[in-house]
Structures are given as C-alpha cells and as structure tokens.
Computed example of a mutant assay.
Amino acid sequence: MNTSNAVIPGTATNSGWSFNWGGISSPNDLATLGKSILSSLLLSPDLTHRWLKSHSFTSNPLLSVGAPWEIYRLQISTSNAPRIVDLYTKSGDISDYHSNLVLVPDWDVGFVVLEAVGEAADVKRNLISDMIAEIFLLIVEVAAKEEAVVNFAGRYTGVSSSVVIGTEEGVLGLGVNLGLSFKPRSCS
C-alpha cells in the first residue's frame, strides 16, 4: 500500500489507515450530496424543507437535533446587529479519521471537512469546521448583503406612494423607508 501521499496520524495500523473499510466517501462525494440536498434533487422541495428542521432541542440553546442532523446555531456579527445562523451538520468517524458535512440552507451553501486527528480527537475534531464556519459565513453574509443591494435596492414608486429599499451602515440586510404621499380625496 502506497502511503507517500497519505495523511496518517500515528501508524497505519493504529490510525485505521491499513484497514479495508470498503467504500469510503471522498470530499467530492460529500459535496455532491450536500448540493443535491440543498437543490432538492433527492427529495421534493417540501420534504427537503421538512427534513431540514429541528426535531428536539438539547440543554444547550445553541444545539438541536434533527433527523439525521446535528444543528449548531452560530452567532455571526457583521454589524451592530448580530444574527444566528443554523448549521446542519452530519459527521462521521472511522478510527482516527473524521468527516463533517455542513449545510447552511439560509444561503444555499455548505462545505466538507475531512480530518485525520489522531490523539485528542474529541478536542480537535470540529476545530477546522468551526473555524471555516466563523470565517466563511461572515464573508457570505457580507456578499449576500451586497448582492441584495444590487438586485433590490432603489426607489419603487406607485400611483400615490413610494418606497425606498436600501441598506444602512451597522444594520443587517435591506431596510424599507416608506415615503407615503396621499392625494386628497374630494368629498361629494
């Protein structure tokens, strides 16, 4: 067995590298699965929406359980108004190897992390996923706001009213400013 390009924590035998596990998913396999779930290619949109819901909460207010998800609530702050984002995760372990599929339905994005953790696995296991989520989701939040401004910001005018949609520094997302002007009615 060629181990020249392998990531082996410890020895090939102790880490589980040398065992024949059968079919193992690659990062591409997991990414394809994640895209399929977010695009409702495996289940109908209604069923996917129901599948991506919490079924039970734990004693930790930032953790709930779905079927089959572990749902972590991450607080991100791109402005003065922090916001909570739900991360739908499915992790798996084989010996010293760990995988984590993370989906963020709010933005239709996700990521996959594969780790070879060795000793102290419980401490290190989700470290990379946590770091990616904290950095990546801040960037996604800013990009989503910028895209919303390009696609939706502006003044919308009707016959007797108008509305201005835009952003304000330190406030999440788009805001609405109603500039109502009423025409007087004639009484008869």
Results as ranks from 00 to 15, higher is better:
S36V: 00
L33I: 09
S39E: 12
T157Y: 10
H55S: 10
S25E: 01
E141T: 09
L87N: 00
E169C: 11
L33M: 09
L38F: 03
A31Y: 03
L43F: 12
A81E: 10
S91M: 08
V163Q: 06
S39W: 00
V85H: 05
S59D: 14
L42I: 13
S56V: 07
V164P: 04
E134I: 00
E119D: 13
K53L: 13
S39A: 08
S44A: 06
A81F: 04
E168N: 10
G158I: 09
H98D: 08
A143G: 12
L178E: 12
I76K: 02
T48S: 09
S91C: 08
M1L: 11
N60R: 12
I94Y: 05
V176G: 03
H98V: 10
P9K: 05
L172S: 15
V7E: 07
S99R: 00
Q75E: 14
L178G: 06
L127S: 09
A121C: 03
G179Q: 14
L172K: 15
A143S: 14
D130A: 02
Y72M: 10
Q75M: 07
V117H: 04
K183G: 12
E119F: 09
V149H: 03
A148N: 07
D108C: 02
G173H: 06
G158W: 11
F19D: 15
L52Y: 08
V123P: 07
T48H: 09
G166P: 01
S4V: 11
G16T: 07
P61C: 00
A133K: 00
T11Y: 03
L42T: 06
V149D: 10
F182I: 15
I135E: 04
A133I: 05
V117N: 02
A6H: 08
I139M: 13
V142R: 15
D108R: 08
M131P: 01
N2R: 12
T58N: 04
W21T: 03
A133T: 01
I128Q: 02
T13N: 14
E168Q: 12
D96Q: 05
A144R: 14
G16S: 07
M1I: 11
P105F: 01
G16E: 09
V159T: 13
T3D: 14
D108Q: 11
L138D: 02
P45Y: 02
I71A: 04
V159M: 12
R50N: 15
L62I: 05
S39Q: 09
G10N: 08
I128N: 02
I139F: 11
G154P: 07
L178A: 10
S161M: 12
L127A: 11
R73S: 13
I94T: 03
A12G: 14
S40W: 05
I165H: 05
W51M: 13
Y72Q: 12
S160G: 13
L52H: 07
W69T: 08
L180A: 15
K90V: 02
D130G: 05
K183C: 10
L174G: 04
H49D: 13
S162I: 06
L180E: 15
I76A: 02
R50C: 10
G166Q: 05
S95N: 15
E168F: 08
G175L: 13
T167D: 03
